[in-house]
Every structure is written in C-alpha cells, then in structure tokens.
Design a protein around this nucleic acid. Structure first.
Lengths: 210, 210
DNA sequence: AATTTCAGTGAACACTTGTACACCAATGAG
DNA sequence: CTCATTGGTGTACAAGTGTTCACTGAAATT
C-alpha cells in the first residue's frame, strides 16, 4: 500500500504539508499573524523541524508566493493559447474557473498584496507588473492599436489588470450562486474600456498644459 | 502654560495618543501583528489602562477605520463643493493632496482593506460601497448619462473608484518627486473611461447570447 | 467637607512564542 | 557491511503575550 519513498520524496512531502497547512490557516488570517509553531503543528511535525525546510516564516511566505505565481502563469498561458485575450467573456471564464479551483492561493495573494511582509509584497508586485507588461505587448499587436504609444498601452493594460484583480477579490467573497452578477459587471467594465480604447485618440497633444 | 484639563479632556487625549501611536506602528506592519502592550507602551500608559478606552485591539482597529473614513468623507465633500466630479485632473489633485496630508491613514486603510481582521475589513468595504453609490448617483445627474440604467451607472462608478484606489496605493509607494507620472497615468485612465462612457450604448440588448 | 467616580498603576497569572542544543534512527553512499 | 548524512524529536529558556485583580489619587458630585 504505502510506496517505499525515498528520503527526498519524504522531505518534499512534509514541505508540501507545511505549505498546505499554512495556506489553510491563511484562509481567514494574515501571514503576519501566523506563528511558526502553529504551521508546524498543522503539518504534524515538531517546531524545530520547521527549520529543516525554511529559515523563517518569511521564507515560507515567499515560497507560497512562488507557488501562487506558478499557478497564475499557467492560467495566463492557457488564456493565450486559446487566444482569449481579445474576448472579455472568454478571459473572464478562464479567470473564474481558476479562482474557484485555487481559492486559497488567490485569497493569500490578494490578502498579502498590500498588507504584511515587505518581501512578500515585493514579490507579488513584480509579478503583477510582469503580467501587465505582457498584456501591454499583446494589446500592441492588435491592428487597431498599432498607432498607440507604449505609455498608452501600458495605461490600458494596467486598467484591465486592475479590473481583473478586483474581480478576483469580489469572487472570493461571493458565493458561487451569485457569481454571475460579479462576472457580468466585470464583463461590462471590460467592454466599456474597449469602447474607450476604440475612441481614444493616441497621444493627445497636451492641450495647453498650464 | 499647561491648561487645566478636565477629566474628559485628559481621557480624550490619551485615547488620541493610543490611536496615533497605533497608526505610527502600523506604518510598516499590519494590525494583526500589533500587540495591545506595544500600543499602550507608545501611548505612555500601562497595558491594563488600555481597557479604559477599548475592549480589544479589534475595537481600536474599528476606531481607526472610523477616523480614516471621516477624513475620506471630508475629502469627498470638498471635491463635490468644487464641482470637480466631472474634471478628472481636479479630482486627482484633491486626492493627491489628501493622500500626502494623511499618508498614515491611507496606508492603514489600503493595507487592512483585504488583509487581516474581519470586522475592520467589513467596515472599510461598506464605506467604499457607499462612496461608489454616491458617485453613481452623481454620474446619473450628468445630462449625457440620464438614459443609463442604474446597473450601468454602478458599474462605471465602480471602475472609477477602482482607479482612484489603485492610484492611492501607487502614490503611497512613490516618492513625491515621481508622483507626476502616477497622476498622469491615472488621469489618462479616467479619460479613457470617460471616452468609453461617451460611446457606450446603454442597455445593449444582449446580442445573441449563445 | 465628605463621598463617589474612574483613568491609570503594578504585581501576578497562565500562556504562546522563536530558537538553541543534544539526541535519535533510518536512508543512502562508500 | 560501515558510516556519514539528515529529517525529525524532546527539553529547555528567555521573552513577550492578554487578562485578572486589588490599589491609588485626583477630579467631579453631593
């Protein structure tokens, strides 16, 4: 029944148990309020054994961010493969599915994005910036937007990422039953932005800056 | 020199000292990681005296939210008085001034908006919803938008509030010297939204929903 | 002038916390 | 087979935590 695990496999298992346990505890609390002993307890090991895996709780936090970001990148790759970047509804559907499948991770990421440990915050911010700039170049490839300046593309990409992020947060505090309304609102917001982009005059020559 | 304070005045003073001290400590940490004793120490009172003012740290947190929201409402009143709701640049200038004058409070609010204590989160969320709905009715009064449905108005208001919030966060982690770029981007985002609103066809009769 | 009210004190409590240290036992390399 | 490696254990300690309780002294009330 129990497969004979190698030592490395065992270690990886309890490392995963630490991360999973931490994520569970983080469902309704912040990383800063989480104690090493608590995490060790949920993983079923003694406090001092924690150090065999992480030098501190902060380090565990960074590992959690990396896991979460791996997941996000997977999602982005899927969205691109489906060429869904242009279709708001399709992109949102991918987002919703991903959020529902990884509530803990999304909750952790949106919770720690602003509050808490500096290093964790930095890691999340830089990854989101990457997202935004990738979306920006994607936008630049759309025929109607080839005239746009880089700054304008970035600006629009930021706006879109912002809508996605608030949608994630809204989804997390909305029951599955009522999620249609949230998605609907997000879709309309994205469409509004697209309408705005269609009517945007690129590089409006600074009308009499005082 | 020292005015003879009444007992109530004294009490109010140390209450303020507790709130101020807490806000200082919260400059780079989250509410959840703040201890009662620590706050009492910075306010210059003994731990047990804390209970004369708040039943718990959570209660102090809620008081901090109330203070912050008072400040935000003042700002909103000012913005309305100046009739700046329509002019993106003017609204942003008011926002920037307010953020610079109350960095601690804005930092606290944006940090605790998602992370940490449930009751604090709720208080912030409900206040922001209020903001959004007020802006929604303001938008409804604009001649060009009288045809819009309530849902569409809400959606647009949410979008605008979202831009304002991310601008606040960006400002907080940007030095005064570089804040022009942040404001510029925000202004363009708001203008993009307005262009989108101008071209929006209200209640688009569900184009062949598959 | 006598008495009540109450913000602030200080000692004590039962915990929890992070980390150091010596130790075990089984895996895996020689 | 032998022995170093290493994930996990148990004990220990100093420091910090929230909360209790009986108290003080001055301001406010009577």
């Amino acid at each position: 029944m129990t497969a004979p695990e190698s030592r490395a496999e065992r270690k990886e298992r309890t490392r995963a148990a630490l991360l999973d346990g931490a994520l569970d505890l983080l469902a309704d609390r912040s990383l800063a309020s989480l104690s090493l002993r608590e995490v060790a307890r949920t993983a079923g090991i003694v406090p001092t054994a924690f150090y065999r895996h992480f030098a501190s709780m902060d380090e565990l936090g960074v590992a959690l961010v990396e896991d979460g970001m791996r997941m996000l990148r997977r999602m982005l790759r899927e969205a691109r493969r489906d060429g869904a970047a242009r279709d708001a509804r399709a992109s949102l559907e991918i987002l919703v599915r991903q959020v529902r499948a990884n509530e803990g991770q999304f909750r952790f990421l949106s919770r720690e994005r602003y509050g808490g440990v500096a290093e964790v915050r930095r890691a999340i911010a830089s990854e989101l910036r990457l997202f935004s700039s990738e979306l920006s170049t994607d936008l630049g490839r759309i025929p109607a937007l080839t005239q746009w300046s880089g700054a304008d593309l970035d600006m629009a990409a930021d706006l879109i990422v912002g809508v996605m992020m608030t949608t994630v947060v809204d989804l997390l505090e909305t029951e599955r039953r009522d999620e249609a309304a949230v998605v609907d609102r997000a879709e309309r917001q994205l469409r509004l932005i697209m309408v705005g982009m269609a009517g945007w005059r690129p590089r409006p020559t600074e009308p009499a800056k005082q």
